[in-house]
Amino acid sequence: MAEKKVRFIIERQDGPNEKPYTQEFDVDYRPGLNVVAALMEIQKNPVTVDGKRVAPVVWECNCLEKVCGACMMVINGMARQACCALVDEIKQPIHLQPARTFPVIRDLLIDRSVMFESLKRIQGWVELDGSWDVKDAPIQNPYTAQTAYEISHCMTCGCCLEACPNVGPQSDFIGPAPTVQAYLFNLHPLGKFDAPKRLNALMEKGGITSCGNSQNCVEVCPKNIKLTTYLAQLNRDVNKQALRNIFNN
């Protein structure tokens, strides 16, 4: 009896400025097979369906449990994590593409450093002027702690940026993930002192005003962060900040 195979159609690219091309690979099926595990099989034996031995497919992965965000790619047209994309649950043949919202380095490996730059831009950190023992430290607001916890799950995987029609080479929008991080740090008992700085950063070109309300971000977020709700909250905060900028000076 012939073994069951899973067909992968992979969009490859040899370098940042090279032309993309596709190659097809067959991987032996096994229960619970996911896309990362299949890519590992291809890496062990990089032979296409035509029997040609090729360079192994390059991709990025790390935690293998949907926490680190590294293995985000476009699987059957959908931006998602490869490690939790179970072969049993998706349509075959399986199409893999790099998330082209970001610059492609090679094959499925992309350069997501733009998100780190955006986090620096919105001041995605808390300034500390000292340290405390636990009992003396400022406490989290218990009413917003759940929200802060939820937003802190963001792993800058970039799914929301890939799905957002307003993010890409044609636009300067920093995207939903870095924007919403501003709200997380504005909720922090010490971070809130820098809230005006973050809100002003969001008012700049490519900030929250570039959001077009397509709401794809909240649909694709693998961590189920209510991105559109926090974008609306930030819109509110930014409008108030604008009034303060106008009337407090």
């Binding site: 047209g77 029609p165 077009g212 397509s214 794809n216």
Partner: peptide
């Protein structure tokens, strides 16, 4: 503004994305 968008309702066919397009 419209030139800043790359409409993608074919890939992400949600109602709000269709409205966006």
């Amino acid at each position: 503004i419209a030139l800043q968008a790359k409409n993608n309702p074919g890939r992400f066919g949600y109602v709000r994305n269709w409205n966006f397009t």
